[in-house]
Design a protein around this nucleic acid. Sequence first.
DNA 1: TAGATTGTTAATCGATTAACAATC
DNA 2: TAGATTGTTAATCGATTAACAATC
Lengths: 224, 224
Amino acid sequence: MKRGKVSNNVIRRLPRYLRKLDSLAAAGVSRISSFELGQQLGLTPSQIRQDFSCFGEFGQQGYGYNVTALRDQIASILGMDRGFSAILIGVGNIGHALMDNFCFSDWGVHLACAFDIKPAIIGTSFKGVPIHSMDDLVPYLRENPVDIAVLAVPKEAAIPVTETLTANGIEAIWNFTNLELTEPNSSTIVENVHFSDSLLSLSYFVAERKDENAAKAAKAGKQS
Amino acid sequence: MKRGKVSNNVIRRLPRYLRKLDSLAAAGVSRISSFELGQQLGLTPSQIRQDFSCFGEFGQQGYGYNVTALRDQIASILGMDRGFSAILIGVGNIGHALMDNFCFSDWGVHLACAFDIKPAIIGTSFKGVPIHSMDDLVPYLRENPVDIAVLAVPKEAAIPVTETLTANGIEAIWNFTNLELTEPNSSTIVENVHFSDSLLSLSYFVAERKDENAAKAAKAGKQS
DNA sequence: TAGATTGTTAATCGATTAACAATC
DNA sequence: TAGATTGTTAATCGATTAACAATC
């Protein structure tokens, strides 16, 4: 597959394309043009065609794109067909919520097992995923190929656990702690899910909206 | 406060600045230059100064920035000092995890109460946050100012609940469902936390890394 | 065929980086 | 004061949009 230097912006749009195409397919739509797709996603047709052209030629002149074929191409670009394996570190609230609600297999990722320190849950399994002791983490990593570690431990444990993971060959971390794990010197791939960053962005937009409304009200008051 | 058209990129960096400044303050650092801050965040000093200059002049020539003063400025820009109120809709796994782990007040947001349909938890409270019946949602919205609705319901309920919220004056939604709520025609502010998008981006980078390594290995093999 | 729509090249726009006078 | 570092203007770089020949 063609995969020259692709910008981060493009990569971040791919999952949105995938979701949209999934829902189009579910709705029985079999073909779509970049124009129509752009309408539905709030993007320009040009941008959509540019984005796809980073990876190949998936459309047909005069016709557009086959929805399921395009979906499968994007799924493949995203690595969904590679059977990546993941382990979950930390079965607290957020870890448990992931095991319970988040269907890893929908996104082509196999959640092999989880690790925790709580004796009450060690040795049990949840939805078919066994929960091991943290003591077994290093031996496990030595014997099993793991592509992605899902980090959902309390923040006190984040740094030492991360060190253990990287020291034992983990190259990608899906980080649910509020800490910035990305170290400039490390080559580990880190994807952060920072709830607080997200909430604060929202808070910014709410504040902005309120200021605008207040300004409008003040102006209207002055005129009357 | 100065707040002309600020680009989305800048807004998304603000929470990172805040976190870094918080941790610098916690470490006892009282002043920092844009150069040093850039080093620690992987940004250029120019970009940092440009970003701040969207909102005012927070530094001092020859000195740099006072860490706590700058932190407070950014907190204010993000609306953390406005006492925004939030309600949580849906106390399932993810909703419960938020109530348990996520400290809304750390980010200046007051979580007033939660709503659910499960009789077993209606009327109880968790960590001081009362859980009401969904039947009480509309009356509640009529009588209480709510800035942000945190949407953590199962995806089947997402659309009708969203309609109820917007019909009753909610202007901002923090969306934890996997659905795209952003409708082009609606003026509601929506901030999505799409776990799947995040995982798929990570998956992309892992796939890319593996391809690179494979290409390197193939090349090395050919040479030997 | 004629109409539609792609993939790609060129033009525009916006964001990042560099440079520097102002000044603490 | 001299050195350091800001805020801002100018230059560069990259991403988005527009245009269009190719072609289904």
